[in-house]
Nucleic acid binder design. Structure first.
Length: 422
DNA sequence: TCTGGGGTCCTAGGACCC
DNA sequence: TCTGGGGTCCTAGGACCC
């Protein structure tokens, strides 16, 4: 049975989260920076109007930030994660058929026979989310997910539609697709856009009408699916149950350059601990640890990047074991004489706790004691803040830690940072 | 001086098998 | 003079997403 897809997208999500708790920011230019205060990852409308692009390195725009009095925030993921949970909770009251696609986006679907009510339903969703959470949203409606994305973009670009646009009810779909540039289509990035332009394809409409064989050859099977979706043939179903994770990554750019093996080992020990914590949170075990380090690729001078993958005999989520292996990994790839900028730990080959095959030749050493230790560790860190208790190998001084000089309070997840009403 | 972090999927090519 | 065809599995790298 055919469905109608809604794509719900929070407007300038991180900026909107900051504005909920500081209304003085409304109508003012605001940006939110990535980790280490590196890139601009969210912009208010006022900033978009200044042609400051998404993902730009913040230091290149210092002059404009000062000139226009742009308010700057470091990322506050505790706050954004919690606000996202609230938005999704409100949306889920309208339908069980929902896919949480990212921190600020969700797809929902309704049977096509409800098409007549689609817009009033969307309006109700929008009003409820905005009233209950304070986060403004836009909604795109269409017969496929890719077209719903397009519809959402139109809803955002043309404010006369009041943040809601229903492409399924349009007679002039061709005209609308003509207005959307090919690189704005979901699944077309910089490289594919270039390939398409070289063949004279500039708009979503031209992409929709491109020949299958050429698309298949140059944009792979993914591109072909996307083109079919533009034609209204649904190829991407709603994924209500998230597929099992394939890997868990923890990595950071350093606040300053790191030269010594000891400091790299500290950093990697911390990342391994964090990854192990995520592992336990999802009740998973890993049997493969991937460690990587790299110098700054943007900078002149000798560049070095390397990685190593270490298989474990038995799957585990025990922090000390993973930290030991990760540090060993650093030992294998570290080279003296370079200025390192980033390192990370990736855990692969994940399995569900309690479902792994014991190894015949080396029975597991894991004891109830270890499990209890990890449980206590997680409990303490959840209650008193992360890293209240941690391994000493992850360093005490830690001069390499990230810069985060403009973070707002964690209003909703820390008692001592609750907003005060005057 | 200063350029994020966490994911997914696909393809090409090599090694290996009979 | 003549040197196949059909598979699988693994990995590295590229492209994309937010």
């Amino acid at each position: 049975m055919a469905s109608l897809f809604f794509l719900i997208d929070c407007n300038n999500f991180y900026v909107s989260c900051e504005r909920v708790f500081d209304p003085a920011l409304r109508g003012k230019p605001v940006i939110v920076l990535s980790n280490n205060d590196g890139c601009i990852v969210a912009r208010s409308e006022e900033v978009k109007a200044l042609d400051i692009p998404m993902g730009a390195p913040a230091f290149k725009y210092r002059a404009q930030i000062a000139r226009y009095g742009i308010r700057v925030f470091s990322s506050n993921y505790s706050l954004y994660g919690d606000m996202s949970r609230r938005v999704m909770e409100v949306l889920s009251r309208f339908t069980p058929d929902m896919e949480i696609y990212s921190i600020d986006e969700a797809f929902v679907s309704f049977p096509e026979r409800m098409a007549g009510d689609a817009e009033s339903l969307a309006r109700e969703m929008k009003e409820t989310v905005e009233r209950w959470t304070g986060i403004p949203i836009s909604i795109g409606i269409a017969t496929t997910k890719t077209l719903a994305k397009v519809a959402n973009r139109i809803a955002k670009a043309f404010s006369k539609h009041g943040g809601i646009f229903n492409l399924a009810a349009c007679r002039d779909v061709d005209d609308w697709l003509e207005k959307v540039r090919v690189e704005e289509v979901w699944g077309v990035g910089r490289r594919h856009a270039k390939t398409l332009r070289s063949r004279g394809i500039y708009t979503a409409r031209q992409l929709r009408d491109a020949p299958d064989t050429w698309i298949r050859r140059h944009l792979t099977i993914m591109g072909l699916r996307l083109v079919w979706e533009l034609r209204g043939i649904s190829c991407l179903p709603l994924e209500e149950v998230p597929p099992p994770r394939k890997g868990i990554l923890s990595s950071r750019t350093f606040g300053r350059k790191v030269e010594t093996r000891e400091e790299l080992e500290e950093a990697v020990a911390l990342y391994a601990s964090r990854a192990a914590e995520k592992l336990r949170k999802h009740r998973l075990l890993t049997s493969c640890v991937h460690v990587f380090l790299t110098t700054n690729p943007y900078q002149e001078g000798p560049h070095y990047a390397n990685a190593v993958t270490i298989s474990l005999e038995n799957p585990t989520n025990y922090t000390p074991e993973l930290v030991r292996v990760a540090r060993e990994g650093v030992g294998r790839i570290f080279k003296e004489g370079y200025l390192y900028k980033k390192a990370g730990v990736m855990l692969l080959e994940l399995s569900r706790e309690g479902m792994w095959q014991p190894n015949l030749f080396s029975p597991p050493k894991r004891t109830g004691k270890e499990r209890n230790l990890m449980r206590a560790l997680d409990l303490i860190n959840r209650r008193y803040g992360s890293e209240t208790v941690r391994l000493a190998t992850s360093g005490l001084e830690r001069r390499w830690r990230v810069n985060r000089s403009h973070r707002s309070p964690r209003y909703t997840t820390r008692w001592e940072e609750l907003p005060t009403v005057k």
